[in-house]
Design a protein around this nucleic acid. Structure first.
Lengths: 148, 148
DNA sequence: TAGCAAATGACAGCATGCTGTCAATTCGTA
DNA sequence: TACGAATTGACAGCATGCTGTCATTTGCTA
């Protein structure tokens, strides 16, 4: 029987809202004792995984956030010695963001915790299902960003 | 070719973060001129679609948020004449939240806008794909909430 | 029925993300 | 090369969601 109140796309939207909240909370719990959070961890991930050092607006573009949101997190992490700013030959004011040695250690530890956590979360879910869902979510997100 | 940096479940997680942001922004744009927002609209939806009137903690449970987050939005909407609080026979302090006539009108207008918007967003996506993705997202969310 | 645990409202404070504004810098193009 | 548009950092303020705390009310159970 079909739902009367919400159609298929609306159901997906509401579930995405709830999963987002649950993921953020779980991430906060997973790395909270390291002095990290979901938001900090994600910024560090963008820095750690980029093929070349990024600027603050570059991180924001990578994450789909505004440069101002990223800016505040980056400044906090810099003030705590987790990230550092390096001169940028391509731009006098916009520095490159890199992990300090301490930041790299913390990110390693977070990654080590994330691997078994993610494996447990996805247990018994076929990889193909994950990929299909990811592609659908990406398609919807791209459509929304186009219409901006 | 497989990604080297992130596995399938991590890719899905990152896309869910981005879709969440894009959906919230799109919702804000869609109903902003009505004096609404994604958050306000969702609370009104929980109230409008509930089979029986809900309390603030009831709305929070329905949405997967804390009662304190919902409480502030509800108080704002009450102060603006969009929601109203009614006596609750089952609990002296915890009132029932209902839409005012004005709130119902606004919710109608928001729904009228949402229908074509949602249809366009899901255009050419098979209903079956939406349902499969929704079920997967729900499964992941439930696993995360269990482990709390 | 008495008492204790859970639920609830209220208040306070914090984290995360957004917008708007302004000056400095960079970049494309005429 | 010079000018105008786009990018960027900085500052300010707001919306949304969270946690912690405390008193009140409910509800379960011994």
């Amino acid at each position: 029987m079909k739902q009367v109140d919400t159609d298929d796309i609306t159901s997906l939207i509401l579930e995405v809202f709830r999963l987002n909240g649950a993921l953020t909370a779980a991430g906060d719990r997973l790395v909270g004792d390291l002095g990290l959070s979901s938001a900090r961890w994600q910024v560090m991930g963008a820095v750690a995984l980029a093929p070349a050092p990024l600027t603050v607006p570059g991180i924001a573009r990578d994450m789909g956030l505004t440069r101002q949101s990223v800016r505040r997190v980056v400044r906090e992490l810099v003030s705590e010695g987790i990230l550092a700013l390096e001169p940028n030959r391509a731009h006098r004011r916009s520095h490159l963001v890199v992990l300090t040695r301490r930041g790299a250690r913390l990110y390693s530890e977070a990654s080590a915790r994330q691997r078994p956590w993610a494996a447990a979360l996805a247990q018994d879910v076929p990889a193909r299902s994950l990929v299909l869902a990811t592609n659908l979510v990406r398609t919807l997100r791209e459509r929304l960003e186009e219409s901006t």
